[in-house]
Design a protein around this nucleic acid. Structure first.
Length: 419
DNA sequence: TCTGGGGTCCTAGGACCC
DNA sequence: TCTGGGGTCCTAGGACCC
């Protein structure tokens, strides 16, 4: 291997071969599982799976569990079958969020240009930090040491000249390592790998590439871009070809948690048991609408397009959406639209596995409200729901709910209602 | 008892306007 | 009268990521 892999000895001096590498990708190792066991030393070397109970999937598994073939996103049923002795722990999202926030702050102590990709990984643009630190590699080792000391979990780091390469490098560094891809070694690093290792190539795209006889990234690189575009579409084809040569015009954009308004806010829920009862579905749509509207108001956004998603027992999924003439963040309006879209499907005894509600076309609520004023819309609901938000804030989330949600036995996923 | 829940982005067709 | 095109919005679906 011509690129350099480095693990454990964090004090090792920085290599000279990271010149021009200004992107650092940091990825926590088995984040959910590592956090779950860090205060439970007796589980240190045990197979541990973090995941949901009924009808759930594996969110994270320790390396001891992965030995048995357990992978994230795998159904819990399958995971338990592969590793019956595994300790299964439910995720503690409050704790995970706190650890995530602390880790992101550690990143920001090195550079302000930190782009979190999820709770447990981020890109750092370190081009402005090289006066304080001797090299990008030194920054990576610094961060690895600090996170290990402060959070008592390990992470892996990729150092490269582009985000895509840094991301692929950190994957190779796992667990608890650091990999540098020198600018002179980009094709040597990329080309031997399988097409599915490219970021953005999932199961379907990989299968399509395999059908073209393309198995390695080198194969993709040496295929005329027109051929790729014909098979995958103009944009995807062009991007794949570029990535196969290490060209990546993605820029790292500093984002600070909840700052930037999101493009959509939604919620969905898998029923504990498939249902064909429209009343059960409508009640769930109301619950989801309530949840989404509250989250929108908390984020100070309003939206115009409401989408309902329905997944059937055979896993086929369909969506129906409607764009309103006004912006809204109000439960009755979101629910009325969602319910109308659902009943408009005219389903007859179809077995439904999951329903979801999502609101898109989000705008800052202040701007959106001004537009509402021009429409002379009444304000009653907005004010009423703000009062609800305050009550929930004071008395907890079960303080105020729509009357139809107060009936017993409506809890989805077979879980019992919280006290 | 196979297959969660939160998102983003792309594609493609039709409506509508210029 | 016929023909052509571009741009934008809306809807539906699909792929992908963690």
């Amino acid at each position: 291997m011509s690129w350099s892999r480095r693990s454990r000895p964090r004090s090792e001096t920085a290599a000279a071969d990271d010149a021009g590498c200004t992107v650092v990708h940091v990825d926590m190792d088995a984040f959910y599982a590592s956090v779950a066991i860090r205060d439970r030393p007796e589980l240190r070397d045990a197979p541990v799976i973090v995941g949901g109970g009924h009808r759930g999937v594996v969110l994270s598994a320790t390396y001891a569990a992965r030995v048995y073939g357990v992978r994230s996103a795998m159904s819990m049923t399958r995971a338990r079958r592969l590793c019956p002795q595994a300790v299964v722990i439910a995720p503690d999202f409050a704790c995970l969020s706190a650890v995530s926030a602390a880790v992101m702050e550690t990143f920001r102590s090195v550079t302000p240009i930190v782009e979190p990709l999820s709770m447990d990984e981020a890109f750092l643009d370190v081009s402005g930090s090289l006066r304080r630190f001797s090299s990008p590699t030194a920054i990576g080792e610094h961060l690895r040491a600090r996170i290990a000391d402060e959070q008592r979990i390990t992470c892996s780091v990729g150092v490269a000249s582009t985000p895509q390469l840094a991301k692929m490098a950190s994957r190779q560094a796992k667990p608890d390592g650091l990999v540098v891809v020198p600018v002179t070694e980009v094709t040597a690093f990329l080309h031997p790998q399988g097409v599915e290792e490219l970021w953005g190539v999932g199961e379907k795209t990989a299968a399509a590439l395999h059908r073209l006889g393309l198995r390695t990234i080198a194969d993709v690189a040496h295929t005329p871009v027109e051929v790729l575009q014909r098979a995958m579409g103009p944009r995807v084809g062009a991007r794949l070809h570029a990535l196969a040569w290490g060209d990546d015009d993605r820029r790292i954009v500093a984002k600070r948690g909840a700052d930037e308004p999101e493009h959509s806010i939604g919620a969905d829920e898998t029923f504990g048991r498939d249902t064909d009862d429209p009343d059960v579905v409508l009640r769930e749509l109301l619950r989801l609408s309530t949840k989404v509207a509250a989250r929108m108001r908390a984020a100070h956004v309003s939206g115009r397009t409401i989408t309902v998603r329905v997944r059937f027992s055979d896993f086929t999924t369909l969506t129906r959406s409607r764009t309103l003439g006004n912006f809204t963040a109000v439960t009755p309006e979101i629910y009325a639209t969602a319910a109308d879209l659902f009943t408009g499907l005219g389903l007859q005894r179809a077995r439904i596995r999951l329903v979801g509600v999502r609101v898109e076309g989000l705008r800052d609520a202040v701007v959106a409200t001004r537009q509402l004023r021009l429409d002379e819309r009444p304000f009653g609901w907005e004010d009423a729901e703000r009062a609800v938000d305050r009550a929930v804030h004071r008395f907890g989330r079960y303080a105020v709910r729509p009357a139809t949600l107060l009936e017993p036995s409506v809890a989805p996923s077979g879980q019992s209602q919280a006290p």
